[in-house]
Design a protein around this nucleic acid. Structure first.
Lengths: 345, 345
DNA sequence: CTGAATTTATGAATCGTTTCAATGACTTAC
DNA sequence: GTAAGTCATTGAAACGATTCATAAATTCAG
């Protein structure tokens, strides 16, 4: 019997000739119910087309089995990979991930946070737009666990999962120097983003150790392909002696933009005239026109670990809050955009 | 007073010295409450850090204010744009969109559908993985409105929002022919995807009208950049006379892959030796190495209209189901990859 | 000043699930 | 044959917001 009216456990119980408690047990603790009864209940469920009402379940449970994830930009493969890691880890705990997109604006970020709070999600993972963590502190005080992803907490107040971006910057610059480059440039911005600053810091540290190497800083409006193209075009306008011989871009999108600009002319070839290295190792890096050398972050694992931290934090019923800050080490992935040897096209 | 224990309307009522009904009215019908009382209640809410429990609210309401959206691939900009259109339209009705990702597998699709049903979402928008719509028919019979997006329903059973892909295919082929190309090729697959078949159908129809023009079909594993590259490499391996002089790719990702393969050599230049046109006009098309001509779909509006249809369908309380099928017309966007004139690099 | 009309406020009932103390049925041990 | 256990099932209470019939307070007309 199928219909548009709502079917409840009570209806199932009546049809199966058992009590509501038994139906609930069939759904949640099947081993506590006699096999014969389980069968009866299941057939009633099928017959009536019963679908468990999650709102009622949550109401009783006090918390939902969903985890909120607020990222800066769903279009950036880095974040969708991270989301996938979170989903996989959540699935192991029988939970789901709700993906939300702050679009780098505080307003949207706050709206999503409120939505998640009202939903009584198990917790919220967030890459905050700004340094002002006040709303998250408030939310946590109200009982919603919060974990920062891809971002260390300044105030050591939040658990977080991040990557050592200073080390990543060092790695990138050091690799460029090893390939014989001397006039390095760092392309990235806005500097309000912590990741950008850290990557630059690491690169500076490395170049400081090499007296014969210089590091120019080329600011950029946003971490997008378009910004990268603008930078590339600017470099093409320069007289040759003023051009860097290698660029470390703050992320892969910027690097790809620079690459596109350079390859529209014959003036600059990669990597001979210009070594190029990106950051994040998004899937697109390997398939770029000239396969892009990049700094890989354990994206999937970051998402997964963040979920673990969140669940752990949610279990801390006592007043004490244990703050755990996980920091991964980045990894250099060498491809054609810096390596003369493996040029195979 | 801030704490980790849950604050309910009852607590707010006690603190404000009013009844629970009044608190509820302040939240939902502020005009029915005296201004002074509203103020009292609001200050109690702030003092206690009250956050409305959405589960309880939904339980009473019977339905949530969320719309589920299941797409094939969140990484494809086409779908994130569509999602954005849906979000905007939903926001106007004071609703939210939950974005889920079927990854083109039926299993995940079904899991997400169940999740949404249990959540008693207002309705579900879906681009189905396969032709088997049985689970969706069942879900709708149980009371969850369903609208198909980017997909016409075969059985005329579902409301849907789609684009006339046959017309789009015709448009693409016709443009290539106008630029003087004679040996066309269509690159796309798998053919189980309705969009692919329709686009090819439109292109065939057009070439059939031109006796001096041929159309080759180059199948492809998936609609990804990687598949496109493989096709490009295959073409490069052919002796020149066997190469097409223009390719219509089933989507932009494939077109970009082909472009990448061609630009690693000097053998083929775009558009002189090979005209190239994609489909979807994703943001990346305009910023590709050679700006890509494409067929634009009103992505944002499709998402928005789908939400409107869904809400309309949800309001149909009577038994009659009105099926509305909206079909948009695609639009040609000419860029450098087919146009000799505007080559400006 | 009274009765009617209008504006505000009340609080018990409700939504559907889960929980848990209590009951019943049925073994097993002595 | 009885006491002590198991094992399976029961059903009322609880979760927290909303609704709505009702009551109270206020305004207004005459």
């Amino acid at each position: 019997m199928v219909g548009t009216m709502s079917v409840s456990v009570r209806d199932v119980a009546k049809t199966a000739g058992v009590s509501v408690g038994t139906v609930s047990n069939v759904l949640n603790n099947p081993d506590k119910v006699a096999a014969k009864t389980v069968a009866k209940v299941h057939s009633a469920i099928d017959e009536l087309g019963f679908v468990r009402n999650d709102a009622a379940r949550q109401l009783r449970a006090g918390k939902s089995r969903c985890i909120g994830l607020v990222v800066l930009d769903v279009r950036n493969p880095f974040f969708t990979d991270l989301a996938r890691g979170a989903e996989d880890a959540a699935a192991e705990h029988n939970m789901s991930v709700l993906l939300a997109n702050s679009d780098e604006t505080s307003n949207r970020e706050l709206a999503m946070l409120s939505l998640f709070e009202e939903q009584r999600v198990h917790g919220v993972l967030v890459t905050p737009v700004s340094d002002n963590l006040e709303p998250f502190i408030k939310a946590r005080e109200r009982g919603t666990p919060i974990v920062l992803v891809d971002r260390r907490s300044h105030d050591k107040n939040f658990s977080s999962v991040s990557v050592d971006d200073v080390a990543g910057g060092y790695l990138a610059a050091s690799h460029l120097i090893e390939t014989g480059k001397k006039k390095l440039a760092f392309a990235g911005g806005p500097i309000s983003i912590q990741q950008v600053t850290d990557r630059l810091k690491g690169a500076s540290k490395c170049t400081a150790e090499h007296p014969d190497v210089t590091l120019e800083i080329i600011p950029c409006r946003s971490l997008s392909i378009l910004s990268g193209r603008e930078i590339g075009e600017e470099i093409l306008r320069r007289p040759k002696p003023n051009r860097p011989d290698a660029i470390f871009a703050a992320n892969d999108l910027v690097a790809i933009g620079i690459m596109q600009a350079c390859l529209t002319t014959d003036e600059i070839s990669i990597p001979q005239d210009l070594g190029l290295i990106g950051y994040d190792d998004i899937g697109f890096a390997a398939t770029a026109i000239v396969a892009l050398t990049s700094i890989r972050q354990p994206t999937h694992e970051m998402g997964a670990r963040a979920v673990e931290l969140l669940i752990q934090e949610a279990e801390q019923t006592d007043g004490k809050r244990k703050v755990t800050r996980i920091e991964f080490q980045p990894e250099l992935v060498i491809r054609d955009s810096t390596s003369m040897v493996s040029q195979q096209h």
